[in-house]
Lab assay of single mutants.
Amino acid sequence: EQIEAIAKFDYMGRSPRELSFKKGASLLLYHRASEDWWEGRHNGVDGLIPHQYIVVQD
């Protein structure tokens, strides 16, 4: 089940696996990879999304 999230802040990925996005961006989350990271998608690209930078939608 995919979960929708909105970016709270701009984020610049620090490795090829991390996604970069702007504040207000819509993100799709697949699952929680760790306490700090989600596996997800932004603009058709899959990668890691930092939990602290997003708001998960109910």
Rank of each mutant, 00 (worst) to 15 (best):
A5H: 02
S20Q: 05
D46V: 03
D58N: 12
S34T: 05
S15Q: 11
E39A: 09
K23L: 08
I6N: 06
L27F: 06
A7Y: 01
P16T: 09
E18H: 08
F21N: 00
H42V: 13
Q57F: 09
K23Y: 08
S20A: 06
E39K: 14
N43W: 05
G47Y: 01
A7S: 09
H51G: 11
L48I: 13
I49W: 00
D36S: 12
I54S: 02
E1R: 08
E39G: 04
K8R: 08
G40D: 00
P16I: 06
E18V: 06
K8N: 15
G13V: 02
P16M: 04
G47T: 02
Y11M: 03
I6H: 03
G44I: 03
K22T: 10
G44A: 12
K8E: 11
W38S: 02
L28M: 13
Y53E: 10
E18W: 02
A5P: 01
S20T: 08
I6G: 03
F21G: 00
Y30K: 14
E4F: 14
L29S: 01
I49A: 04
Q57C: 11
W38Y: 05
L48Q: 13
S26C: 13
F9N: 15
G47R: 02
L28W: 06
Q57V: 12
L27I: 10
E35G: 12
L27R: 01
W38G: 01
R14E: 15
Y11Q: 03
H51S: 08
E4A: 08
Q57D: 08
R41H: 09
L28G: 10
H31L: 09
L19P: 02
V45I: 09
Y30G: 07
I3T: 04
M12Y: 05
R32I: 04
E35I: 09
S15V: 10
L27T: 02
G13A: 13
W37A: 04
D36M: 12
S34E: 11
W38C: 02
Y11K: 03
E35N: 04
H51V: 12
Y30V: 11
L19C: 14
L27E: 00
P16A: 14
Q52R: 11
I6L: 06
Q52P: 12
P16Y: 10
G24T: 03
R32P: 06
K22D: 14
P16D: 07
S15E: 14
A7N: 02
G40F: 00
Y30L: 13
D10G: 07
A25V: 07
K23D: 03
S20M: 03
I6C: 04
P16Q: 15
E1Y: 12
I54T: 06
F9P: 01
D36Y: 10
F21I: 02
V55M: 04
G40L: 00
D36P: 07
E18Q: 12
E4S: 15
Y30R: 09
F21C: 00
S34C: 10
H42C: 14
K22G: 10
G24E: 08
E39Y: 03
E35W: 06
F21A: 00
D58H: 10
Q57R: 12
E39H: 13
K8H: 06
N43G: 13
A5D: 01
D58L: 11
W38E: 00
Y30N: 09
L28T: 13
F9S: 15
H51F: 07
R32M: 11
L48A: 10
E35D: 11
